[in-house]
Amino acid sequence: MPILQPIGRTVLAFLETVGRLSLFTAISTSHCMRPPFYPRLLLRQMVEIGYYSLPVVGLTAIFTGMVLALQSYTGFARFSAESAIPNVVIVSITRELGPVLAGLMVAGRVGASMAAEIGTMRVTEQIDALDTLATNPFKYLVAPRLLAGVTMLPILVLTADIIGVFGGYLVSIFKLGFNPSLYIKNTWDFMEALDVISGLVKASVFGFLITLMGCYHGYNSKGGAQGVGTATTNAVVSASVLILSSNYLITELFFAR
């Protein structure tokens, strides 16, 4: 059957990828829990992910908060419901936009650079050299990145939440003529612990997915500069897709009634 052949081949390739990815995930997480740990490397990755992503995440957050206030105003003014703006801003930012946008930005920044770095190490035999020097690449390369991703993303997202709400505040006060203390009071009243917590849980999961994809595609890259390029693209695309789909799942878990 010539029609079934390509279908079968695609299914098999898919299953193989799923199997390899699961194995990679299992090995990586198990190395995150067992010594030896590399505190220096962990610190370096935490700075790389947490600190150096601040500008891009902050910019994304502030403009998102600003545009959110502006757009809700256009919509709500028709029903004289402008007072709901602080509510819309805080809920959207903490629940969805903060974690998702920060996750996507970090996927582009950190996921890509991880895939490129580890991929280059693979094609220039540096990973083989690590192995021969009796150092486990999962422990030395993958574990610090995963741990840094899982811990740093929530901190980034918390910062993004604050900056995003501040963006909404700026537009509301200086452009839409809101009363500053009333806006802050409303924001505070509408803020729910569960909204913030769900956002931080999402952030942690996204941090895991971003770094996992960066490491997985880098580790399995082959064939020189072109292979590293493909790995980088795949890392960003797969991380983005996983972020958006897992975002739905986590939202469902937290808020579905």
């Binding site: 280059t120 035999e125 540096q126 083989d128 050299a129 020097l133 150092t135």
Partner: peptide
């Protein structure tokens, strides 16, 4: 092992490369 293309870790300085097996291993 000396690799054909040396395979030095380019995120480490030369002496750190040489000392790698002593420190990590």
């Amino acid at each position: 092992m000396l690799f054909q293309n040396a395979a030095l870790f380019d995120s480490l300085t030369v002496w750190q490369n040489v000392a790698f097996g002593l420190i990590q291993g």
